[in-house]
């Protein structure tokens, strides 16, 4: 049975408007993130160590994780607390793209291609713009799977391109 409906396929090409992450690059958030990935690079805390980048910076992939639930937004995990299919994912503003009508399908991270141009400095605000680049179904040895390709550009408020990511999300 095909998983991919025409309704879901119609999202190919859908773009978000560029929008800001709710918070600027916060030193405390950078510290927790760097500790969680266990990368002790002093440039994440110390302006002198990050001098080449213009000051203390966030880890390379950090901008892609800045698009968090803004204060006052609906609380997905409370709204779906009684839903046995709720997987715990909080991605209401994950990409700015509308959620695909694929409820109940598991979500797996399939991989990515990332191009880096600069690091986000402490205190900078970051924008992203995303689009559904492709949505297709493949038969695999584990059964049919849907591959969702999302392309996103992350820039600073001053217009500096930080990174470009092409992510593959697998739904099955």
């Amino acid at each position: 049975m095909a998983l991919l409906t025409e309704e879901a396929r119609a999202f190919i090409g859908t773009e978000s408007e560029p929008f800001f992450a709710c918070d600027a690059v916060e030193p405390g958030a950078v510290r927790r993130y760097a500790q969680a990935i266990m990368d002790p690079d002093p440039a994440y805390a110390d302006a002198a160590a990050g001098a080449r980048y213009g000051g203390a910076v966030a880890p390379p992939i950090y901008p892609t994780f800045m698009f968090r639930t803004p204060f006052g937004a609906p609380d997905t995990m409370t709204e779906r607390a009684d839903d046995p299919d709720y997987d715990g994912i909080v991605m209401g503003v994950g990409s700015g793209l509308p959620e695909l009508p694929l409820h109940g399908l598991a979500l797996l991270n399939g991989g990515a291609e990332i191009e880096f141009f600069a690091y986000a400095r402490h205190g900078e605000r970051v924008l992203q713009k995303s689009r559904y680049a492709d949505i297709y179904e493949r038969e695999t040895k584990s059964g049919p799977m849907i591959f969702v390709i999302i392309e996103t550009e992350f820039t600073t408020e001053a217009g500096q391109l930080l990174l470009r990511a092409r992510k593959t999300i697998i739904r099955r």
């Binding site: 990935i37 080449r52 390379p60 399939g110 291609e113 880096f116």
Partner: peptide, 26 residues
């Protein structure tokens, strides 16, 4: 993916730059 970025960043050094990383979660 963070670990891959860290390995390459630390290897490239401050004077270098990690331009592209591609990976699949196989």
């Amino acid at each position: 993916q963070q670990f891959i970025a860290q390995l390459l960043k630390d290897w490239a050094g401050r004077a270098g730059w990690v331009w592209q990383i591609k990976f699949q979660f196989r």
